[in-house]
């Protein structure tokens, strides 16, 4: 008999049939009655574990659960529609004109007359000028109100 007994882990693995090929364990078990008994007990334990009766609910789980479930179909459709509709509308508003005017799309810039560009520039510069003047006047008024000199 070998002096050192098998470790619990080795006995468990052997009992589960995962370590049958290990020559040391086989040799040891052939000579050690104590370890052989322990392995036999492990095998009995594992057999009983494997033969455990399986659990079954003694009530109808599906019926029980379904009473607590509210149909969410309408809510879901409304929710999906609410999120998809604005996006779809924006896509339509952009893509439909692009499709309709697809032939003129590349001539938008080149087709504009020089007079129209000139008039647009003048209008923009005038607006910017008046906006700047208004901002400047407002700034001057606020500075006067502060009246640092007095």
């Amino acid at each position: 008999m070998t002096d050192k007994h098998l470790a619990e882990e080795e006995m468990q693995l052997y009992a589960m049939g995962q370590d049958k090929a290990d020559a040391f364990i086989v040799t040891h078990l052939a000579t050690c009655e104590d370890c052989r008994n322990q392995v036999a007990i492990y095998k009995a334990v594992l057999a009983d574990i494997n033969n455990q009766p399986e659990a079954v609910f003694d009530f109808d789980v599906a019926s029980l659960v379904m009473t607590g479930i509210e149909p969410v179909k309408a809510k879901n459709i409304a929710g999906v529609f609410a999120s998809i509709f604005p996006a779809a509308l924006i896509i339509c508003l952009v893509t439909i004109p692009l499709y309709i005017f697809r032939k003129n799309f590349f001539t938008i810039v080149t087709g504009i007359s020089a007079v129209f560009i000139y008039m647009s520039l003048i209008a923009c510069i005038t607006i910017i000028f008046f906006k700047t003047m208004r901002m400047y006047n407002k700034y001057q008024q606020q500075i006067k109100k502060l009246n640092f000199s007095e």
């Binding site: 379904m66 149909p71 309408a74 879901n76 459709i77």
Partner: peptide, 15 residues
Amino acid sequence: RGDTLAFTRIIKNTE
């Protein structure tokens, strides 16, 4: 998609 019967099937499969 709102098919509650499919959920009953899931219950039966996993209970």
